[in-house]
Simulated scan of single mutants.
Amino acid sequence: MTIPAELKYTKDHEWVRIEGDIATFGISDHAQEALGDIVFVELPEIGREVNAGEAYAVVESVKAVSDVYAPVAGEVIEINEELEGEPEKVNTDAYGAGWIAKVKITSDEAVELMSDDEYTTFLEE
Results as ranks from 00 to 15, higher is better:
residue 1 M to Q: 14
residue 1 M to G: 15
residue 4 P to F: 05
residue 6 E to G: 05
residue 8 K to C: 07
residue 9 Y to G: 02
residue 11 K to Y: 06
residue 11 K to E: 11
residue 11 K to D: 10
residue 12 D to Y: 11
residue 14 E to L: 03
residue 14 E to K: 05
residue 15 W to D: 01
residue 16 V to S: 00
residue 17 R to D: 12
residue 19 E to Y: 09
residue 20 G to M: 11
residue 20 G to E: 13
residue 21 D to L: 10
residue 23 A to Y: 07
residue 24 T to K: 12
residue 24 T to N: 11
residue 24 T to Q: 13
residue 26 G to K: 10
residue 27 I to F: 06
residue 29 D to T: 08
residue 32 Q to D: 09
residue 32 Q to V: 12
residue 33 E to M: 14
residue 33 E to G: 13
residue 34 A to E: 10
residue 34 A to N: 08
residue 36 G to F: 08
residue 36 G to R: 10
residue 37 D to M: 03
residue 38 I to E: 04
residue 38 I to Q: 03
residue 40 F to M: 07
residue 40 F to R: 06
residue 41 V to F: 01
residue 41 V to W: 01
residue 42 E to D: 09
residue 44 P to Q: 01
residue 44 P to T: 00
residue 45 E to V: 01
residue 48 R to L: 02
residue 49 E to M: 07
residue 50 V to N: 04
residue 51 N to Y: 08
residue 52 A to K: 03
residue 52 A to C: 08
residue 53 G to T: 04
residue 55 A to C: 10
residue 56 Y to K: 07
residue 57 A to C: 05
residue 58 V to H: 09
residue 58 V to Y: 05
residue 59 V to E: 03
residue 60 E to Q: 14
residue 60 E to M: 11
residue 61 S to L: 06
residue 63 K to H: 02
residue 64 A to R: 10
residue 66 S to Q: 04
residue 67 D to L: 00
residue 67 D to R: 04
residue 69 Y to M: 00
residue 69 Y to G: 00
residue 69 Y to Q: 01
residue 71 P to V: 00
residue 71 P to E: 00
residue 71 P to R: 01
residue 71 P to Y: 00
residue 72 V to P: 02
residue 73 A to V: 03
residue 75 E to I: 03
residue 76 V to S: 06
residue 77 I to E: 11
residue 77 I to N: 10
residue 78 E to W: 04
residue 81 E to L: 13
residue 81 E to P: 07
residue 81 E to Q: 14
residue 82 E to N: 15
residue 83 L to M: 07
residue 83 L to D: 01
residue 83 L to F: 03
residue 83 L to P: 06
residue 84 E to I: 15
residue 84 E to L: 15
residue 86 E to K: 15
residue 87 P to L: 11
residue 87 P to M: 11
residue 87 P to R: 06
residue 87 P to Q: 07
residue 91 N to F: 11
residue 92 T to H: 15
residue 93 D to P: 01
residue 94 A to M: 06
residue 94 A to E: 02
residue 94 A to T: 04
residue 95 Y to D: 09
residue 96 G to Y: 07
residue 96 G to M: 06
residue 97 A to V: 05
residue 97 A to T: 09
residue 98 G to P: 00
residue 99 W to R: 04
residue 100 I to Y: 02
residue 100 I to N: 04
residue 102 K to E: 12
residue 102 K to G: 08
residue 102 K to V: 10
residue 103 V to E: 08
residue 103 V to P: 06
residue 104 K to W: 06
residue 104 K to Q: 12
residue 105 I to F: 09
residue 106 T to C: 03
residue 106 T to Y: 05
residue 107 S to M: 07
residue 108 D to T: 12
residue 108 D to Y: 05
residue 108 D to E: 13
residue 108 D to P: 05
residue 109 E to L: 05
residue 110 A to M: 11
residue 111 V to E: 13
residue 111 V to A: 13
residue 111 V to G: 12
residue 112 E to M: 15
residue 112 E to L: 15
residue 113 L to E: 05
residue 114 M to N: 13
residue 115 S to F: 12
residue 115 S to H: 13
residue 115 S to D: 12
residue 116 D to E: 14
residue 116 D to I: 10
residue 120 T to F: 15
residue 124 E to V: 02
residue 124 E to W: 03
residue 124 E to A: 11
residue 125 E to W: 13
